[in-house]
Amino acid sequence: MTRRSHFGDLQFLHFMGNAVGEKPEVTREKLLMWMGIMCQLSLDQDGASKNDSVSRHLPESLFPRSEWASVSLRALLVATTLSYRLTDVRRRALGVCLHIVQDSYAVSHTKLPSHYHH
């Protein structure tokens, strides 16, 4: 997930468009959808559970790879790293939200590099 969220199709997780020319409105819509799920998860609201599959909450257009469809939100957030087995998923989800807010103020995440301007 880290590689994909910094250099691939999940860059909206860092408030970046997934492709040159992606409209800011599209990036924002993806980001708000993701952040809504993470907020629900962090608050332990009825809408989202750590054991829910990614596909239950997010459209295929956000996670187009078929292997992500059945992965739980918990697995998405902590992967299979053994040392993370006791991770508090609610706190991890809150951290995701705070990281998104932080990134939304980082120029490197919100401005197109000058070498992309034509």
Rank of each mutant, 00 (worst) to 15 (best):
D52Y: 05
S114T: 11
A79T: 13
I37K: 08
T110H: 05
V96R: 07
S108D: 12
S53Q: 14
W34M: 14
K23F: 07
L32M: 15
V78G: 02
G47T: 09
S53Y: 05
D9H: 07
S5Y: 02
R4Q: 06
L41G: 04
W68N: 08
I37A: 15
T80L: 06
Y84M: 12
A75M: 11
H57R: 03
S104L: 03
R85W: 01
L82I: 08
S55W: 05
Y84H: 14
L31F: 06
L73S: 03
V26P: 01
R56D: 09
S49A: 15
K30P: 02
V101P: 01
L13T: 13
G95H: 09
Q45D: 11
V26W: 01
K23W: 06
L94D: 10
S83D: 08
S83Y: 08
A48Y: 06
H118M: 04
L112M: 12
S83C: 06
M33P: 00
S5F: 03
R3A: 12
H99V: 05
V71H: 07
P24M: 04
Q102T: 11
Q11C: 10
V101N: 07
L41I: 07
K111V: 09
Q11M: 14
F7V: 02
A69Y: 06
L43I: 01
A19E: 14
S72E: 00
T81F: 11
G21Y: 06
S70V: 07
R28W: 11
E67K: 12
T81E: 13
C39D: 10
V20G: 09
L31D: 01
D46C: 10
V71T: 13
H6L: 09
T110Q: 15
G8N: 00
E60T: 14
L43A: 13
Q45M: 13
R74G: 07
S49R: 10
T2F: 13
L98E: 13
L112P: 01
M1Y: 03
D46F: 09
P64D: 05
M1L: 12
V54C: 05
Y116D: 07
